[in-house]
Design a binder for these strands. Sequence first.
DNA 1: TTACTAAATTGTAATTATTACAATTTTACA
DNA 2: TGTAAAATTGTAATAATTACAATTTAGTAA
Lengths: 136, 136
Amino acid sequence: MEKYVKILKKNDLKITSQRLIVLQYLDENCIHPTADQIYSDLKINNPSLSKTTVYNALVALQKHGIIQAITISGSELRYDIPHGMHHHFYCKKCGKIVDIDISCPNIKKMSEFGHKVEEIHGYIKGICKECLKKGS
Amino acid sequence: MEKYVKILKKNDLKITSQRLIVLQYLDENCIHPTADQIYSDLKINNPSLSKTTVYNALVALQKHGIIQAITISGSELRYDIPHGMHHHFYCKKCGKIVDIDISCPNIKKMSEFGHKVEEIHGYIKGICKECLKKGS
DNA sequence: TTACTAAATTGTAATTATTACAATTTTACA
DNA sequence: TGTAAAATTGTAATAATTACAATTTAGTAA
């Protein structure tokens, strides 16, 4: 837990137990969860937790680049801790998101268009290996 | 307009005036509009148009790959007609989406992960040239 | 052209993720 | 330990999208 305290401190964020457990949850569960999933899972051991707090914590962590929001599904935001450039695959059938470890060779080119680049997302959509196996 | 009739026919979609105007709108307005923008703009000259119809038309066109939904903003879907692989830049300040003409050299690699790849999206977020000029 | 069937359109109501807000509690610091 | 600013909480509001039932229309075959 000290690990997460350090991260918050480094980013001048106030240390609260709620931010710590949200951060820990994302660090230990690389399932690219929704805000609601995070809330439901944490609520079990933290009955006083509010869903708004989860949203607030996610916004605060995002502002400082500690976590990132993934917009791949189109209907809900999914969150993860970005460790190194990678892409995301979204299964249209089961909704799962999996990391695709490819880095983008275009990154340097992006700034040549005159816009200030802050985030780069590589999204791939289709049917995942496991759903393919199960058949339709 | 005959152009759009052909597209619908080729895809075994029933020809309706509503689908035609939605398709024409997207073809002539490369602004990556929301469903609501499309609806509002078309409503002016087509007072009987319903918003649900716009949604239905978009779903039908999307199913056949005639148009694509862009999930870059995270809060709403934006639509465009994909002509050739390109990426999208989203301005966090003004909400504008602009095409970035880069093709992704990773495309071949994507299928090596065992998933069935149906769509690839390259999203870049930041502040656009014009908003940078205006300053904060 | 006419009649028929399946599909599309329409308007309204429901759903769902997210945000706004005011009251209360807590953190960080003097 | 006291205090001010910030965070948490619960509820209410918002906004995009979907569900649904009634009506209309497109496509086809007689």
